[in-house]
Amino acid sequence: MTLPQPPRTALAPALLTATALLALTGCGTSEADGAGGGSGAPVVIRIPDPGNSGVLAVGKKDGSLDKALAKAGAKVRWTGSAGPFAPAAQAMNADQLDIATGSLTSGITSLAQRPGFKFFTAVDPDAAGEGILVKNGSGIASVADLVGRKVAVNQGGTGEYLLLKALARANIPADKVERVYLRPDQTAAVFNAGKVDAWAVWATYAVAEIGTGTAHFVADGAAIGSENYSLNAVRTGFAEQHPKVVKALYQYLRDASAKEKQNPAAYLNVFTDAGPTAVTGKAEQVQIDFTRKGGTVGPIGPEDIKRFKAVAAFYAEQRVTTAEVDVAAHLLDIEKLK
């Protein structure tokens, strides 16, 4: 995303089921035997389907991503769908996925297991698009007003980090606020039904809520002091076997994210402007504003690594992890790949 353990309420299972993992990865077979191997066939890189928005959605629709990867002898296989990083990390560990995107915070909790992946890009923390969401008229005007309330968070990920970071910055003991652990895709209904008082969340889910005109951030990433980077991860074995492909993907993401920041509207509603995956009305302008204020894909530098370490230390202090995770041991210097 120092203090005693807070009370915890789980309204939904936090662990990934086998069914959910299969839904994410689509086909569970390895692509190793079809990845070039001297046969002249292109390397297949497995990436979660990007949905209806973002640089990968545009790359899928216009073929620009495959064109960029073809120069490195590769092509994309879209598998499953993009979602939380934890199941994607499990899929990479199981050799069912090669690339995934997630937050630094969810990455740290995944690295605390037995990781089979490395991070190779970084986007600066989202100062505008993540924060503590509350309903208009809730009576919650500051982080201090969360004391004695219930706040929905995703366990070990961005939501839990944002809440703990906000409380620490306001010098409020974490056990003064009840964390309600929910999967992000299950939280909107609970939040809107008033079963929780606030939701620590990021742009993927916040845009729709803010777009209704009935909710707002009581504290955004800037106010919280969030150091929660967005990262791209690659399966370790894939990076070792196909460094040129990883480098080509990085260059595509870097260039495309800069274009997206300049013209966010062109990267929304890529395949359809109607239905549940479309961003419409006020929500569309909210997303455009967040993207314009956001960062772009770049390499992971020394200053980034220092901030990664600070977040890992914070997670250990807050007992989200049992020990400080060594994030630096799981990074690729993309600029050195050949």
Results as ranks from 00 to 15, higher is better:
residue 79 T to A: 15
residue 80 G to F: 01
residue 81 S to T: 09
residue 82 A to T: 05
residue 82 A to M: 04
residue 88 A to G: 13
residue 89 A to D: 14
residue 90 Q to D: 11
residue 95 D to S: 13
residue 95 D to K: 15
residue 96 Q to S: 10
residue 100 A to E: 08
residue 100 A to F: 08
residue 101 T to D: 13
residue 104 L to E: 12
residue 106 S to T: 15
residue 107 G to I: 00
residue 108 I to P: 08
residue 110 S to H: 00
residue 110 S to W: 02
residue 111 L to T: 15
residue 112 A to P: 01
residue 116 G to V: 03
residue 118 K to G: 01
residue 119 F to C: 10
residue 121 T to R: 02
residue 121 T to S: 12
residue 123 V to E: 12
residue 125 P to C: 08
residue 131 G to E: 07
residue 133 L to C: 03
residue 133 L to R: 01
residue 133 L to N: 00
residue 135 K to M: 14
residue 136 N to M: 03
residue 138 S to F: 05
residue 138 S to H: 01
residue 138 S to C: 03
residue 140 I to P: 12
residue 141 A to R: 15
residue 142 S to R: 10
residue 144 A to D: 12
residue 147 V to D: 00
residue 149 R to F: 11
residue 150 K to C: 02
residue 151 V to L: 10
residue 152 A to E: 05
residue 153 V to Q: 01
residue 155 Q to G: 07
residue 155 Q to S: 13
residue 157 G to E: 09
residue 161 Y to L: 12
residue 163 L to F: 11
residue 164 L to D: 12
residue 167 L to S: 09
residue 168 A to Q: 08
residue 170 A to W: 09
residue 170 A to K: 05
residue 173 P to F: 00
residue 174 A to I: 07
residue 174 A to K: 09
residue 177 V to M: 13
residue 180 V to Y: 10
residue 185 D to Q: 09
residue 186 Q to R: 13
residue 187 T to K: 02
residue 190 V to Q: 15
residue 191 F to N: 00
residue 191 F to I: 02
residue 193 A to I: 09
residue 196 V to P: 00
residue 197 D to S: 15
residue 198 A to F: 04
residue 199 W to L: 13
residue 201 V to N: 03
residue 202 W to L: 08
residue 203 A to P: 10
residue 204 T to D: 06
residue 207 V to H: 04
residue 208 A to D: 09
residue 208 A to C: 01
residue 208 A to Y: 06
residue 209 E to Y: 02
residue 211 G to W: 09
residue 213 G to V: 08
residue 214 T to L: 14
residue 214 T to H: 14
residue 216 H to L: 04
residue 216 H to D: 01
residue 217 F to K: 01
